[in-house]
Amino acid sequence: MNELDKIKEFLLENPTLVNIVKYALLVVFILLIIQILRRFLRKNILDASARYKTQKGVEIFGYILLVILTFSYFTGNIKDFSVAIGLFTAGIAFTLQELILSIAGSIYIFVVKVYKPGDRIEINGIKGDVIDVDSVYTTMMEIGEWVTSDNYSGRIVKLSNAFVFKGPIYNYTQDFPFIWDEFDLPIRYGSDIELAKSIVIKIASEMLLDYTTHSKSKWKEVVNKYYIEDAHLDPTLAISLTDNWIQFNLRYIVDFKKRRYVKNQLNEAIRKEFEKTNGKVVLASTTVELIKLPEIKVDLSSKN
């Protein structure tokens, strides 16, 4: 008996091993096709958004195809298919429950459009810009933490997609890519308050005109889509009296990525205009008023 006959006899005596090898080759072939298609799309699609979505579509389709082929491949060798599938599913669900939940989360993210790459979100206490969503993880460029305002910290965070089922998701971008922001201005008592109000409102209205105009059109879409009341989108100014100064609270709407920049521009412009009033409007600072000085007695006489 030659070597070829021995191999044939071995294969005939071990059909299970043959099936496993065939199945492994099939899986490798499909994974290889997925990678080839992803590389082809990456090289030939110029638009970043379209390139990303098509690559993810190929990846998800490939995984679904693998699952279908896996079940169909072993169906012929299992007499009681329903019982076997039940036991198999229970075992997989128990051992890989986090992984399965993550994959389910990725499908949920894409189907329901919870968020997408480019969105700024906060999930599981982590805030940042989404830079990638794959079948298991969401990758974010973190903002905040030890860095003030909405600046990048420099850390890239990978978060399991399972978290979409475990808590709230705050999306700064979806449907309405604007946020409300505010800051306080302390005005000294005795200042020309009406002049100060007109300066603040004029600067805010002029500098924020583009944001206000665009946000109004977006807000109409939000009102038509959701059960929500209309909102005031123009800059507003509220005044309150404190022990030390008159406090101006300026509230306005701004692009979610330009919050820090716009606040700085507003503060600079308002400060310069106040300085041009020649003392009619003065920014206040914390002061201490002494009502009465304590009496101090000094005995300069000396005893010999």
Score class of each variant (00 low, 15 high):
44 N>Y: 09
55 Q>N: 14
40 F>A: 12
56 K>E: 14
66 L>D: 08
52 Y>W: 11
79 K>S: 06
71 F>R: 04
62 G>D: 05
52 Y>N: 15
55 Q>S: 10
73 Y>I: 00
74 F>D: 03
71 F>S: 05
77 N>A: 12
45 I>H: 11
68 I>R: 08
72 S>T: 13
48 A>K: 07
40 F>N: 05
54 T>A: 14
47 D>S: 09
53 K>P: 03
64 I>S: 04
54 T>D: 09
44 N>T: 10
64 I>R: 01
81 F>D: 10
69 L>E: 05
45 I>T: 08
76 G>D: 06
47 D>R: 04
73 Y>S: 01
40 F>D: 02
52 Y>F: 11
81 F>W: 06
51 R>D: 06
48 A>M: 03
74 F>A: 01
71 F>Y: 11
61 F>M: 14
39 R>Y: 12
63 Y>W: 13
62 G>R: 09
65 L>K: 04
42 R>I: 13
39 R>D: 11
55 Q>K: 14
40 F>Y: 15
66 L>G: 06
61 F>Y: 15
66 L>K: 04
66 L>W: 04
72 S>C: 00
57 G>H: 08
74 F>C: 05
70 T>E: 02
48 A>H: 05
63 Y>P: 03
43 K>A: 09
36 I>H: 00
71 F>N: 04
44 N>D: 01
56 K>T: 13
69 L>M: 07
54 T>S: 15
76 G>I: 05
37 L>T: 12
51 R>N: 12
69 L>H: 03
49 S>F: 00
59 E>V: 14
78 I>Y: 04
60 I>Q: 09
60 I>E: 11
37 L>Q: 02
59 E>A: 14
39 R>V: 06
59 E>M: 14
74 F>P: 06
75 T>Y: 03
68 I>Q: 01
69 L>C: 07
50 A>V: 07
67 V>Y: 12
